[in-house]
Design a binder for these strands. Structure first.
Length: 552
RNA sequence: GCGCCCAUAGCUCAGCUGGAUAGAGCAACGGACUUCUAAUCCGUAGGUCGAAGGUUCGAAUCCUUCUGGGCGUGCCA
């Protein structure tokens, strides 16, 4: 058993023994004291109980410690203190930390995993960009965040899937067709303007050229709307293909690419309309059909069917979300761009009206990205081809740096992405700092082997006693805790922070302790410690989808 | 007007759900390579946590108001 688990279990039993309710998981959370003299692990449970129990926190702490002293294994804990207003501080036994190195290595790739989520099925939908143009920078951030969070949820025992919704129908697709058709005719020498609200990006000129090179003037004789439809389908396919290629290049594998057409062809939105009609959730006004979203806290009611008789995007989207529930997902989590936050109340309202509890649908807004080059913001305008594309950025800075930077910030925070920094191969760049720690460990291993020292499968860890070594183990043991916290708070940046801190602790250890020496027992123990550090850093980088280089 | 996000060191940000003396990284300055990679480490300096109230044993963290910034507020998607 790992020391944190042991402490947690013991606190739980101590709580029960003293007549407290121990079912609240948050009561059992542990923290690391900032000052070394406050021990290795600390619990605030006594202070948190003070209000409920209406007793002095130090008194509660004393009662708990009395129980704890009877339960704790001296192989794990050498001392328990009560300090300040009622902190309970635990001092870990050296032996316990030494053995923990072996535990980490034993769990290897599974170190960090747990069954906290209990197989609960969650659908993560993210990016879902319109297939009318290349993916932009915000999509790149959403992709990184969504991918990493899905990985984290799966690590702690949820059954989480990645999903991408493709809007391959509706008004914007017609506009795409009209736009590419205009570009195509222009290519043939019959200049036509791209519709005002169409897509003006250069990528459609390129596509028109491609079509012309392949098929010549084959489509010129078609009627305008027929040509727009035909070329529109080609453009759609081309764009979706590009989106898929971008994601693959970004090391992101979706479980599902879901076409809007599937909803429309199955007439799934009709079921939503029927349900709303039956439950009096909809009404007609000014030739349109409205949904009573204001009854669920939205500012006003929303249109389901326009006065022209067309289903709105909103209606189709409701049916799509219902479809996700129908496929067995218990909770839906969407990541949307900042321009969509006004859309949350109406979708939440619709799903509640369909009988889904409010908490079964959650949206996280991923804030915008500002690209910086030479310290200045790059203007990203959606107009007339000034889009800075996701692929351009990835090609310039690399997948590793891009993923790290996009995840290294709270998602509710706008992100400044410094292109120069991301490319820099120096200590200023956190990605290299972390990767370097991994490469450095690999190098120690190589050096050992070159000098005839075999990398041990196991070792007597008792020579490992100094503060740098023990500090490293304590840091490594914190990894599963970090993973759980990242999931609970939907905060993937905790993983990058953790990795950076771990790299720091390792570099300090490296600086103070020579690993491969004449002392065979010490060498073996430190090699084991290095292996454990390598494993944890690799696991963390793996969560982020970032490579763990053997040398740099 | 209303709604969402935000305000912490010169810059970029953490701050583990209310805890102990507010921390990193960059930038600045001063040190450490005959050593398993100096892509590293050590040290110095830098703060009225936007402002004012409130809640309590205790607030950067929770509540209210204000100031200042970003975004949104279609029978678009």
């Amino acid at each position: 058993m790992k020391p944190l688990e042991h402490i947690r279990n013991s606190i739980k039993k101590a709580l029960e023994e003293n007549g407290f309710d121990a079912s609240d998981k948050t009561l059992l959370s542990l923290e690391k004291p900032k000052q070394a003299e406050h021990g290795d692990i600390s619990s605030t449970v006594a202070m948190n109980l003070a209000k409920i129990a209406k007793k002095a926190p130090r008194q509660i702490a004393q009662d708990l410690v009395n129980s704890l002293n009877k339960k704790l294994d001296p192989d794990y804990i050498t001392k328990i203190d009560i300090a300040g207003p009622g902190f309970i501080n635990f001092y870990l036994a050296e032996k316990c930390l030494q053995q923990s190195v072996l535990t980490i290595l034993n769990e290897a790739r599974d170190f960090g995993k747990s069954n906290w989520g209990d197989g609960y099925k969650i659908n993560f939908e993210f990016v879902s960009a319109n297939p009318t143009g290349p993916l932009n920078i915000v999509s790149a951030r959403a992709a990184a965040v969504g991918d990493v969070l899905t990985t984290l949820f799966n690590m702690v025992g949820y059954e989480a899937k990645r999903e991408y919704y493709i809007n391959d129908a509706g008004r914007q697709v017609r506009l795409l067709g009209a736009s590419v058709s205009a570009r195509y005719m222009t290519e043939l020498g019959n200049e036509q303007p791209v519709p005002e609200d169409g897509y003006h990006g250069e990528y459609l000129i390129d596509l028109a050229k491609e079509i012309f090179a392949k098929d010549g003037d084959k489509y010129a004789s078609l009627a305008d709307d027929e040509r727009a439809a035909t070329l529109g389908r080609m453009a759609l396919e081309y764009m979706i293909g590009r989106h898929k290629a971008s994601m693959k290049n970004y090391r992101l594998e979706y479980d599902e690419w879901f076409n809007e057409t599937r909803i429309r062809e199955a007439n799934a939105h009709q079921k939503v309309l029927d349900h709303f009609a039956k439950t009096d959730m909809s009404y007609e006004k000014e030739d349109a059909l409205w949904f009573r979203s204001s009854q669920f806290g939205d500012e006003k009611d929303r249109v389901l069917i326009t006065s022209q008789g067309e289903p709105t995007y909103f209606l189709i989207d409701i049916a799509y979300h219902q479809n996700k529930y129908d496929r067995g997902f218990e909770t839906l989590i969407d990541f949307w761009g900042p321009d969509h936050h006004g859309y949350i109340p109406r979708m939440s309202a619709a799903l509640q009206a369909l009988g889904h509890p409010k908490e079964k649908f959650d949206v996280s807004i991923i804030q915008q990205v500002n690209l910086l080059r030479s310290g200045k913001a790059i203007k990203m305008s959606k107009r007339a081809g000034e889009i800075v594309e996701m692929d351009e950025l990835i090609n310039e800075v690399g997948v590793d740096a891009a993923r790290y930077f996009f995840v290294d910030r709270r998602i509710s925070q706008p992100l400044d992405f410094d292109i120069d920094l991301a490319k820099k191969q120096s200590d200023e760049n956190p990605v290299f700092y972390v990767q370097y720690a991994h490469a450095r460990i690999c190098n120690i291993m190589r050096h050992a082997q070159e000098n005839g020292v075999e990398i041990p499968e196991t070792a007597d860890m008792s020579p490992m006693t100094n503060t740098f070594e023990l500090a490293l183990v304590i840091k490594l043991l914190d990894f599963p805790e970090m993973v759980t916290k990242a999931v609970e708070n939907m905060e993937p940046h905790r993983i990058t922070n953790y990795l950076h801190e771990t790299a720091t602790v390792f570099h300090k250890f490296y600086h103070e302790n020579r690993v491969v020496t004449e002392d065979k027992a010490m060498t073996a123990a430190r090699l084991m410690l290095c292996k454990a550090a390598k494993q944890v850093i690799a696991n963390g980088l793996d969560v982020l989808g970032i490579s763990a280089p053997e040398n740099m």
